[in-house]
């Protein structure tokens, strides 16, 4: 078996197995993230959340998935059919391919490439196309308005995110995700870069179109925004893509700022546990804050959103880049 896997034919088989090992748990997490979201918000609003299907409502995500799977896919008459169906696929594919470079444990990564951070940034910057294509192809005013808002919002916050990532890269001296985690041995970047961590978290809320920045799907004004014309599986793909993106962005924040798979302190009871446990724990903590923000904050107005992105985050992160570079150079800690 081991011999076969090392051969010419075995390599693709091995890669496919790796991919399954990443995607299956991911889809499971997406399903139970929707459940967790409803339960947590339910608790915060003194409701019970889903509790009918199965014990504690645990089978609710499966029931929801089946429902969407069995419904009819409706393509509106005025829609552009190919683009209409390609949009949800693109969103979902992009949410999955990004996981290729996320190291969940020491060496547990599909592609340990040198430009891991840039790859992730490139994939997440393409995410906007799924939404624009959906909004345009639906041939509907609400969907189009949602898509326009989303495009402007995601492009704006990417600029700030890029500068925030640069300060982390300056400290780590590499673009490789695993090496960034290794560089945080002893001190997580969330501590020296605390303002950037907070700004990064707010930016990923905007980047994933989550509350309080969920203007693209503001249900009070735009019905449901870009996905208003979608039904059944195409809708489910958007939904899965959005939640997979939330997990991905939490994973990215964990790797950049919270030390990835590293335990909080490298002493006996903590480093007995496997790295994947710490990684999942940190991602789950961030996801909880995602949901908490949804329950706690009212939606931003669009001009407020743009002001925050361009007038607060962009100059703030730029100043921090200069500051980081100066401090590292003056103290002689600039990585080789």
């Amino acid at each position: 078996m081991v011999d076969f896997l090392a051969t010419y034919l075995g390599t693709p088989v091995l890669i496919v197995l790796h991919i399954f090992a990443i995607i299956m748990p991911l889809l499971g997490s997406v399903a139970y993230l929707t459940y967790a979201e409803r339960k947590v918000i339910g608790a915060m609003q003194m409701r019970r959340g889903p509790n009918v299907v199965g014990p504690f409502g645990l089978f609710q995500p499966i029931a929801d998935g089946l429902k969407l799977f069995l419904k009819e896919t409706i393509i509106p008459t005025g829609a552009s059919p190919v683009v209409f169906l390609a949009a949800p696929m693109l969103t979902f594919i992009l949410a999955l391919v990004a996981w290729a470079v996320i190291p969940v444990n020491d060496g547990w990564v599909l592609a340990d490439i040198n430009v891991g951070v840039l790859y992730l940034f490139a994939i997440s910057s393409m995410g906007v196309y799924g939404i624009i294509m959906a909004g345009w192809a639906s041939n509907s005013k609400y969907a189009f308005l949602g898509a326009m808002r989303s495009a402007a919002q995601m492009v704006s916050y990417e600029v700030a995110m890029g500068l925030i990532i640069i300060s982390v890269l300056l400290s780590a001296g590499t673009l490789n995700m695993s090496a960034i985690v290794e560089a945080q041995q002893g001190l997580w970047y969330a501590i020296p870069h605390l303002p950037m961590f907070v700004m990064f978290f707010i930016s990923i809320l905007a980047e994933t179109n989550r509350h309080p920045f969920d203007l693209p799907e503001a249900e009070a004004e735009l019905v449901s925004g870009y996905n208003v014309e979608y039904s059944a599986m195409p809708f489910a793909l958007f939904f899965l893509g959005e939640y997979a993106n939330m997990i991905l962005m939490s994973g990215l924040a964990t790797i950049l700022f919270l030390g990835g798979w590293l335990p909080p302190v490298d002493i006996a009871p903590f480093n007995w546990l496997p790295g994947i446990f710490w990684f999942s724990l940190k991602v789950m903590a961030l996801l909880f804050v995602f949901i908490w923000c949804r329950a706690a904050f009212p939606r931003f107005r669009y001009d407020q959103l743009m002001r925050l992105g361009w007038k607060v985050f962009l100059p703030g992160s730029l100043i921090w880049v200069v500051l980081t570079a100066s401090v590292l150079t003056l103290t002689g800690n600039l990585p080789e």
């Binding site: 430009v115 840039l118 790859y119 940034f121 490139a122 910057s125 393409m126 906007v128 492009v155 990417e158």
Partner: peptide
Amino acid sequence: MLLVIVYVG
């Protein structure tokens, strides 16, 4: 990666 980020993104 720059091509994708700048041109595509």
